[in-house]
Design a protein around this nucleic acid. Structure first.
Lengths: 200, 200
DNA sequence: ATAATCACATGACATTTGTCATGAGGGCCA
DNA sequence: TGGCCCTCATGACAAATGTCATGTGATTAT
């Protein structure tokens, strides 16, 4: 019997997945979590075979949970089920030891099979990601990423300088570097491109 | 027997909802649609009692589908199931004759009950929306909204002027008006605020 | 018929953004 | 030890953004 925990902030999907996966003869849903913190706590408590988790959740993201489990040498394998085919997410997920990565545009049968494969130690990657994912490493350094996040929230270069204790000229240089790496022309295109790739 | 169609672009959720709602004695899922166009076609074909639909879908949004059904005097009632509690969405949904509006952070039991209520001619609005929703009318005019969409995609004022056949000075004036109405300081804050409210 | 409103425009000016060159200081590696 | 790289900085300049005043023509309301 494969014991799993489901982590998903939307109750409707979480409940539906729990119900459907419970119908499988060889899968047992031992707990459900609505955010990353709860997921971490429940995995520690129940030590399931697989954690089925979204990425974007309150408290901790699914990737952060995976990172924590890896750091603590947990035997629980992680299967990511997310909306977006973002290569940046997949790269970070791989680095965090995640062995399953599928999209929500998959069928529940495929989800069940993915749970089985991951439980047995196999690797499952959504076909849509198999190529694009491994091609482009994240070109941004940490400072550039941090600045792009602040740009995304609408901050001016001056404000970013104050927040990060940098001069606004330095912020402009970092932004220029980012936009060049991303192949775009302005700050809006820059954070959008980074966000779409999962690099933000 | 309440006959329904489910429209949702994510296969996992669509399949899960179809399975769960089919388990109810008094609800029959007669078809499933993966985008707005398919939803419209299937409603015309099957004339279900209720269309259960997401808002953000390829082809047409759930609201556009509702608008079309209203325009064609359809007897099919519309129940929106969406992720975001955005007042702008709810306002447009109401105008389109939608009688159910719940969030994906609801349980499947609540969803089933909402389907029943809407089928009987009742109105179901998510509690989270009951207050905030009706307070603030959309302050943007059509031109401002159109310009904010282009800003959101990273276009410069000059580019927007070319696209909309306006002078860049006019574009700047419209943007200034938008940012003032939204109570923000720059273009990025402006489209984000409008997007979050569902006015974009 | 007239006044008010709306959509769009022009113009001027201050501020911000973006580009690019150049440089300092510290850490790392051969 | 010296070269290279990274992080951060300064400076100059062009272009874009944002603010604000003012105006035109069409439409609408009185």
């Amino acid at each position: 019997m494969i014991r799993i925990i489901i982590a998903e902030d939307q109750l409707l999907l979480r409940g539906a997945l729990a119900s459907l996966l419970s119908l499988e003869d060889d899968i047992e849903v031992v707990a459900e979590a609505k955010d990353g913190r709860e997921a971490l706590n429940l995995v520690k408590l129940h030590t399931p075979d697989v954690l089925v988790t979204d990425i974007e959740m309150p408290e901790f993201s699914g990737i952060q949970v995976a990172q924590s489990l890896k750091r603590n040498n947990s035997n629980t394998r992680v299967l990511i089920v997310t909306t977006f085919a973002r290569s940046g997410y997949l790269q970070r997920a791989r680095d965090a030891g995640v062995t399953g990565y599928i999209l929500k545009d998959t069928s529940s049968d495929e989800l069940s099979n993915a749970v089985r494969t991951v439980a047995q130690g196999g690797v499952v990657i959504a076909p849509e990601l198999s190529q694009a994912a491994w091609a482009i490493p994240d070109p941004l350094n940490d400072r550039e990423r941090e600045i792009l996040r602040l740009v995304e929230s609408g901050k001016t270069n001056k404000q970013i300088g104050v927040i990060l204790n940098l001069s606004s000229g330095t912020v402009r240089n970092y932004l220029a570097s980012s936009t060049q790496k991303l192949g775009v022309s302005n700050r809006i295109e820059a954070f959008r491109a980074a966000r779409e790739k999962g690099w933000l």
